[in-house]
Amino acid sequence: MGMQNRILVLAELQDGAIQGVTLEMLGKARELANGRQATVDVVVLGANVTEQARGLGAYGADTVWVAESPALADYDAQAYAIALMQVIGRVEPTLFLCAATSQGRDLSGLVAARLGVGVAADINQIKDLGHAWEVVRPIFGGNVLSTLQSTPERCLIATVSLRAFEKAAADAGRACAVEAVAVDAITTRTAIKVFAAEVASGRLNLGDAEVVVAGGRGVGSAEKFAIIDDLGRALGAAVGASRAVTDAGWRPTNEQIGQTGVTVKPKLYVAAGISGAVQHWVGMKDAGYVVAINTDPEAPIMKTADLALVGDLFKVIPELIREIEAARGASV
């Protein structure tokens, strides 16, 4: 495959809606493209996505490639890879960015195999060396930062960690070209049956949230978890849980923050009744500011939190909510 001076971003969609991480990748792609007079291409795969795709011009896309088909309504790795490869063949990018999500990780690997290159997984920094790309990714649970270099004159494929980069600023007047990709003939051997959403409507998306409140074993029961929801509401936060909580069935597994669950990167993280085992720490260590509430001042999370509140969460949280409401009242 040849290589053109073009940076390609795979838009991340969930339930047909373009996700925030797409704008984060676009922000970085635009910055890199400006430094080397490259163009930014975005590929959007799905059903009924053209209007949303067109809007990406405002966030720095020069060309948006839209593969629209009922066959792409539900995620099917094989179908998506076929459509995606058509765009890769046309764009011949020097850099291909996907989100570090279930879809992005899948598709980056499938494209890598077709191009015969490796994937730099879960990067959070990228630099243009001119002849190659240099990226940084945390390895060993974030205990080490690894710098990687791509092979000169080869496309680099990377998955980008959520919230690693600033979202592109919108410029409403900026337009982009829209190219339709023909995807009539996609047939695959997998049969996608059903998708059952686990997220109750009205709850904020954890991975994207700027404020996250999480409860752990110390909450005690599914019923008592309401106090975590109350604090979440007061702070306008998404609500998560530790593994002990989801294992016990107090909360659904998709709310689990940690190594085997969701990774969050909020500006503010409040951990109540969570001891902060490494398993949990891996999922929230990139939070900007950590508040921990625990009766045990020696709990691991209390030693690394920016603010360690020693006390019974059932006594402290109602007071916190009262203070938050008082503060709100005072500022109105």
Binding site: N143, L145, T147, Q149, T151, V310, D312, E319
Partner: peptide, 29 residues
């Protein structure tokens, strides 16, 4: 290998923060 590791470094250290103890009302305030 199309992607090669060229350097490793430790992440910047995160020190202990501030501990607040006492009555729940005062802690919350």
């Amino acid at each position: 290998h199309s992607v090669r590791q060229t350097a490793v470094a430790p992440p910047s250290a995160r020190g202990a923060g501030r501990k607040i103890e006492g009555d729940a009302v005062d802690v919350a305030k």
